[in-house]
Design a protein around this nucleic acid. Sequence first.
RNA 1: GGCACCAUAGCCAAGUGGUAAGGCCGAGGUCUGCAAAACCUCUAUUCUCCAGUUCGAAUCUGGAUGGUGCCUCCA
Length: 471
Amino acid sequence: MQVYNDLTRKKEKLTPLKDNHFTIYVCGPTVYDLFHLGNARPFIVYDTLRRYLLYKGYDVTYVQNFTDIDDKMINRASAREISVKELAEEMIAEYYYDADRLNVMRADNHPRATESIAEIIDMIQILEEKGYTYTLDDGVYYDTSKFEDYGKLSGRNLEEQEVGASARVDLEIAKRNISDFVLWKYKKDDEPSWDSPWGEGRPGWHIECSAMSKKYLGDTIDIHAGGMDLIFPHHENEIAQSEAANEKQFVRYWMHNGFINVDNVKMAKSGGNFFLVRELAKEYGYDVIRFFMLQAHYRMPINFESEPLIAASNGWQRIKSCISNVKFLLSHEDDHSSSEHSQALAKYTTEAVQEFERAMDDDLNTSDAFAAIFNLVRQVNSYTAEYDLPKETLINAADTIVKLCSILGLDPEDDQDEEIPADVMEKVELRNEAKENRDFALADQLRDEILEQGYRIEDTAQGPKVIKEEK
RNA sequence: GGCACCAUAGCCAAGUGGUAAGGCCGAGGUCUGCAAAACCUCUAUUCUCCAGUUCGAAUCUGGAUGGUGCCUCCA
């Protein structure tokens, strides 16, 4: 498998540092509010990477943090007149509510900044001993000019920053370099704070990821991932901290996903142009959101609109119907013997797996992976319509579709095993009798009644199939 | 000012040197009592534009146009 590494700006063969075991750190949410569609992209994308690596037989240790102390946390808690701690607890629970339903596997560790203060202080102390820090009135700072490789990830250098720091940035005169950043912020007012060698205060944003990554995954990790906007300064600063402190390469592969846009502008809380996953899920369902997200390649921008979301819903339904139809067929048909047709379908099934893997192996090309699934769906639909096939072949094809979907974190069998209510089934029976008596007026009336109760009838060669209508 | 990114059919979206995947929508057909589902056919001689390299370019090079992101919190 190869993957685009932002550090080298090219696709590289992806191999674990140790044995068969990948270590992955994904920058998690600041838990001050529900997350929106843009926030959800890295959760879904890197969860898919994790699932694929597991499918390929690797072990994966996956860490995703919660940032539970920063200005936004403090401001929101203050506005709601609750403690920062209470806010964090609430929003972490809300995170799990949405993430679980998006089928994002829980990380092996979900460390919180406030529970990693000791490790954070340790790392700052090491940086201080090595001469990378200096102190200003409001906190302890990292001197980026002391770190030779500063800018290697984002392709910037200090000189350009000085020159370019024009209109938008208020130069903080006190900092030695424009790119210097705070490691430890001194306590102000009644902000939450912890004791440290530098006095009461709280950690800066960047140091938490360096400290927690080291704590759970070691000095050098395989993959570190997050949104494009984290490349600078967040990840650049993490490199500066970790490599200065540990004197080892921090991350072997840096992966960054593109943004979700609205009217071609980045979706952001601060921009006010955001859609909460919680809200979208009410209308479209969590599975459709995930499907929608993975239809595009993870590094490409996605312009969020309702039309493509509806298209995603219909496309996903096509896969679900295929599985549902096969299951119906299997439970209503006798077995058949092997034939040239069943062998052909078996061949398509094998090929679909190969196409899927080829796509995923190429920098997680989920668009092509879906194409492989859809091609198999078409073959299954086509062959089941035309020929009598042995059950083994059908089961294998359907299981393959389900399996490939599951690698993408999608379950086409979800919600398909619900019992049909007895009164609906009675009407289905009555309609069947009416049809046999060629009383089509009655049959159609019953079908309408059934539809009003939320169920749709599809007449198949094996008899009526009753389907619960999606919303 | 610096550093990046994007531009493919009505819509979404892969493909990055060998003659345009896939999904949605739409049209026609098959099946059906009628539907639904499904299948078949059709839907970009062409990839924002202009030059160039090449036997060959959506894919490489140069330029133009339009749009976006980061440099401040940010997925």
